[in-house]
């Protein structure tokens, strides 16, 4: 007797809140507690909540992502950020930042460390989801 109406309805609302909060702490990692690791873990927690409320096939339909490719993309982004410093004749992992006038956000400080953090974020999401989905599908 399967009747998960309440759980599934609340999941639809809660997943968006969790995803927004994870993006918020990912982007705020430079100035406040948070960053790529916690943001990635929280994003995968949102997907795990979807997995709890629905089943593996439904979630694979909603998010048709191969998480092993996500790990690869994250490592590639991080490696390119590290190697990119060599183009400017500075030691590896040298980061640069500057202030830009963006249309809506106004004066914003953009830092290349965010790109490295994006790599960390993707790797964490990929690894966590690969582990959980591999354990979850037991055929």
């Amino acid at each position: 007797m399967k009747n998960d109406l309440i759980l599934q309805t609340i999941t639809k609302v809660a997943v968006f809140i969790i995803l927004l909060f994870s993006i918020s702490i990912f982007l705020g990692g430079h100035y406040s507690p948070g960053g790529g690791f916690v943001g990635g873990l929280m994003t995968s927690a949102a997907i795990v909540l979807l997995l709890l409320a629905y089943d593996l096939k439904t979630v694979a339909n909603i998010l048709p992502v191969d998480y092993k490719l996500v790990i690869g993309a994250g490592l590639l982004i991080a490696a390119l950020t590290v190697a990119g410093a060599m183009l400017f004749n500075v030691p590896m992992m040298t980061h640069a930042y500057n202030y830009f006038d963006l249309p809506i956000l106004g004066k914003t400080s953009l830092h290349t460390a965010v790109l490295f953090d994006l790599g960390v974020y993707l790797v964490v999401v990929g690894v966590t989801m690969t582990i959980i989905q591999t354990i979850g599908e037991d055929e």
């Binding site: 309440i6 759980l7 609340i10 609302v13 809660a14 809140i17 909060f21």
Partner: peptide, 20 residues
């Protein structure tokens, strides 16, 4: 705003956890 979001989130999810 995180605290406000926390209030909303607790209000939303805690009764569902009790129900389950």
């Amino acid at each position: 705003t995180r605290v406000l979001l926390g209030i909303f989130f607790i209000f939303l999810t805690s009764p569902v956890a009790g129900h389950l």
